[in-house]
Design a protein around this nucleic acid. Sequence first.
DNA 1: AGCACA
Length: 327
Amino acid sequence: MAGAGIHPYHHQQWPPAAAPPPPTAAPAAAPPAPPVHHPPLPAPTYDEVRTIFITGLPEDVKERELQNLLRWLPGYEASQVNYKGEKPMGFALFSSAQLAIAAKDALQDMIFDAETKSVLHTEMAKKNLFVKRGMVADSNAYDQSKRPRTGGDYTHTGYTTPSPFHPPPAPVWGPHGYMAPTSPYDPYGGYPVAPVPMPAPAPVPAPSSYVPVQNIKDNPPCNTLFIGNLGENINEEELRGLFSAQPGFKQMKILRQERHTVCFIEFEDVNSATNVHHSLQGAVIPSSGSVGMRIQYSKNPFGKRKDNNHPIASPGANGAPQALTYQ
DNA sequence: AGCACA
């Protein structure tokens, strides 16, 4: 339960089928004759800046990379990378200023490439991106360029996600990296689309958000994770639900202490542990309040004895009882 | 920062 904050991005269908905005603001260049009362939607004035400026791209960024990222954002129309100068500069045009702002916020501080530590910085552009005719539509495959340029209008029927591709499913965390909550961007957050009628609150447990975690002193990688900073009211069911769904999960032990509840999770191998170490670092689940869990490798992994200083017939490397050989 | 159980 508590599915309110869960974000089943695995099932997402990008353009929601919901049909929120009444097509009131007809973008046609019609004279403003009829006294239509203005809808909450900002009537798009066509000289408004609806382009965002993106820096922080790695130097080897490809136009296509940026496009493949941006195409998931509502209202995306076109983008371009200028390579002149030291750093590449990206521009992306959206169908309205509002959608551009939403996209700007969605991309702000997102980790574009963890390897090169590229973190995006976005701001509104000074002026709109000029889309050369043919440039966009011809050389690119994304369907959006064909739809009636009034972006944000997903109300027309027949649009289904063109491919099984979906945005990066799991957030990747750098050692101290912070990435926007849940998925690199939250496609629904702050967007003028109606509350998506989430069909099935997918039982896939997922954190409701993430919070940066820093200054972690860690232990050598092993098959067991130590989870701390869980908050005082942590719900064990919730914890278990989350971790037991992780690939390679074997068992978990929750330890309630005075103020700090901690838990240990054993995985089948170090690899599975490592994946979770990264993917859930800083994860926030509803009962943990607003704190992000801290994940470290355990000091004492499952299956390894802590301190066996009493040599019970200490076997040799091959198992031969060495005890017999001493003189 | 809080690391137990076999």
